[in-house]
Amino acid sequence: MPLLEVNNLEVCFGLRSGAVKALRNVSFTLERGERLGIVGESGAGKSVLGFSIINLLSRPGRISSGNVHFEGYDLAHLAPEELRSIRGNRISMIFQDPMMTLNPVLTIGTQMVECLLAHRKISVVDAKRIALKKLQQVQIPSPEKRLDQYPHELSGGMRQRIVIAIGLLLDPDIIIADEPTTALDVTIQAEIMDLMLNLCEQNNVALILITHDLGVVSQVTQRMLVMYAGRIIEQGPTKEVINDAQHPYTQGLMNALPQMAIPGQKLNQIKGTMPPLQRIPKGCSFNPRCEYVMDICEQKLPSFTESGNCQVACHMVAESKQDELLGNEV
């Protein structure tokens, strides 16, 4: 049985102009200790998916249907108190911008200790000891000094280390990292990513890494989901998806990487932009931008087709698979 199982998750934002669906029919699983990447353009629903796993959507967002199964609980329909006992404890989250994540008027120590005390019946002294141990694990210089400091006294990289330490405080089963390195200096990015990878491996923590950095995904994760306009359009082992992308959108993302362009030539890019959630086209939501668009793409939503170890939601892939089957039979 997988550690986490998301079934047909649908997230709705009730706006004045009407409800907008930010996630549609999202299903995936996560095994214990597995590292899963979620990629896609801005606005594809990556962060919404991350937050909806622990049911922490900001108003007016809410889970309108589907389930999130974790250790026998359905997180999508759990009472607030029970949900609270899982958040930060079994599943913790690392946010994008470390400059905004820590409370400016509370010391690092306070922000770490409160998290431990909320989930475990231990003394403040013990909590401080655990906090110090975690600060050592994230390799922060002179950790004992940090507990009494305020966030403004630390650099961005150090703050993100502290956020990671807070994420690891209670030895969670899953860490959801929402673009944990985007707001950091390029030189720090690699360090932080290495640190997270090592910590997850050592502690057998499953990682859900939300990012638009395909390089990071290929280095860190074992499996990946590609999202477009609130849906998963391709998922599978990271190596296969990266090396042999099936969906035209994923192919477009790969071709857009600077490494893929011939020096001196313009970078390849996918034409157009992602449609706003209020105006998602009929059929396959990628059809207006797709180079291989067919009639059926504008009519019918593609279902998942198995291709190797991957699942792809594309009519073209489905047809070529069918041809293969027929060809074999003839």
Binding site: I54, L56, S58, R84, S85, I86, R87, G88, N89, S92, M93, F95, D97, M100, T101, L102, N103, P104, E114, C115, A118, H119, V163, I166
Partner: peptide, 13 residues
Amino acid sequence: SEYVKFAWAKGIS
């Protein structure tokens, strides 16, 4: 703010 959202994610009361 993000830090309040993070506080919710930590599971504190």
